[in-house]
Design a protein around this nucleic acid. Structure first.
Lengths: 147, 147
DNA sequence: ATGGATGCAAAAGTTTTGCAAAGAA
DNA sequence: TTCTTTGCAAAACTTTTGCATCCAT
């Protein structure tokens, strides 16, 4: 698990928010899922783990956690939000549209870009988790969408 | 308008598909919108322009056009698909989460990355339209989510 | 005790699907 | 004519909202 449970309540309180069992469970679920989780999956995980938590609450908590930047959210290529713990090492995905292969792309390829965006535009990127779509090496021979 | 109407029917037929008024109208709407359009906006534009076209049809056509790569789709940071004509010059967005400023980022910052992904992973990126979220230069003084 | 957070239920919004009818080739 | 594509209507799915209640501080 990549977050430190002990500090989270403290962090929330320092910012004027409250720690609740629901928030704790959602945070745990996000952490344990290991990144890129859909809200529905988190809802399932939370419900499974212990007492029933309302779906609306899970959505509200995820939105809240994103706003206070304890989690980040990325949009998948099919247009749905995926959540991830903010402290995780950033990484990205190369998703083949033909075979579905999912290559993981280390963040080092982006760190130069990150710095460039800051020096050139003064823009401090907070969320740059991205999935690129295309064709992996194996699928390029096949001409996926031709007939 | 950035696409060539004359050729589109030909392109579709060559690949074994048919050109229909609905597909033409959707393509026109995507082009005229100038990039990053939500399906619902396209539906509105199409309906406004001429005879009634069904919403389901618009969604089907957009999905189809994306599959055959006449349009590309990007997911916005709030998790919705935005469509764009494929022939347009790729560009990206730096979206400030505090003031909503939307800086446009030319593709040149990515072309090196594009090549790197190909030479290193053999992966040919087709869709890399991306919106980065963060804080613009003006908003960094304010500590947006602190109190 | 006090105000923020949750549960519930309902609504809103978005996208998909099955099938008959229409129409492009 | 033939087979793809569309319209329609309904369903599926995802996310949000209002309000009373609960509970963390």
């Amino acid at each position: 698990m990549s977050h430190d449970n002990i500090d989270l309540a403290e962090i929330l309180r320092k910012r004027g928010y409250r720690m609740t069992p629901q928030r704790q469970m959602v945070l745990d679920a996000v952490c344990e899922s290991g990144g890129h989780v859909a809200p529905e999956r988190i809802y399932e995980a939370v419900n499974e783990k212990s007492e029933a938590v309302n779906r609306a609450t899970v959505y509200r908590i995820l939105k809240f956690l994103r706003e206070i930047q304890l989690v980040t959210a990325t949009a998948s290529p099919d247009g749905h939000l995926l959540y991830e713990i903010a402290s995780g090492e950033p990484h990205h995905h190369l998703l083949c549209r033909k075979c579905g292969a999912d290559l993981e792309l280390p963040n080092e390829h982006f760190s130069r870009l990150w710095q460039q965006l800051f020096s050139e535009f003064g823009f401090r990127v907070e969320e740059m988790h991205v999935t690129f779509q295309g064709l992996c090496a194996d699928c390029q021979g096949g001409r996926a969408s031709r007939r």
